[in-house]
Amino acid sequence: GSVGMPAGAYVPPKSVWLPAMKAKGLEISGTFARRSGVIQMELSLTNKAMSVMTDFAIQFNRNSFGLAPAGPLQVLTPLSPNQTIEVSLPLSTSGPVMKMEPLNNLQVAVKNNIDVFYFSCQYPISLLFVEDGKMERQVFLATWKDIPNDNEAQFVIKDCHLNSDAASSKLQGSNIFTIAKRTVDNQDMLYQSIKLTNGIWVLTELRVQGGNPSYTLSVKCRASEVSQFVYQCYELVLKN
């Protein structure tokens, strides 16, 4: 972002999801973004075949968080050989739910006038971190105590050179909210909350020690299978 603007959520660079050789010349690369609460799949469609492509449509298989296209894939003009177009597809989270392995896996079908093609991709679950995920302090303390220790997962985030305030503000851009900060023995402890689109709350403690580039992240969540994906988001957000 420009000077004085919040950095916003991290958007990974596009990667190739469907190589042309597996889709009769159609190449699809893409990424996911959350902007002001709107989830989008951002796609580049390239025609590497010898003939024009038309009649595009997209469908998702059921998935862990109910991600579904909120409208049709808008490819309004035929795609000529060697042409690339950029398409943004808004997504909802009210589609059918089925737990996927890995949890953030999405199976996609794309059709055009030539055939139907299938691919899988993975989204950062920060896509699902909602804007009102700042938990009341009192509720945080009670919930932290209430979630059993067995549901706590710990991770080390290496090579991070931000101080705790910079980390906190960067994380907030991705809807990871700092509820409290305490300094004990030269360590800053950030207590943070996250709420997913399906109502699951995640509580974390981020430990930042002056002069030590390794952070310790503790994640407490009743649905403990989301913890490692939350950790992946911290890595992505803090290092980009």
């Binding site: 302090r137 009192q138 303390l141 932290w144 409290a180 305490r182 300094t183 004990v184 023995d185 360590q187 402890m189 207590y191 403690e205 430990r207 503790s218």
Partner: peptide, 20 residues
């Protein structure tokens, strides 16, 4: 008073986590 209590509770939590 509630706010003071919460401030104190977070301090206790942080201390308990660094010196369990």
């Amino acid at each position: 008073e509630l706010e003071d209590g919460l401030d104190e509770a977070f301090s206790r939590l942080a201390k308990s986590r660094t010196n369990p």
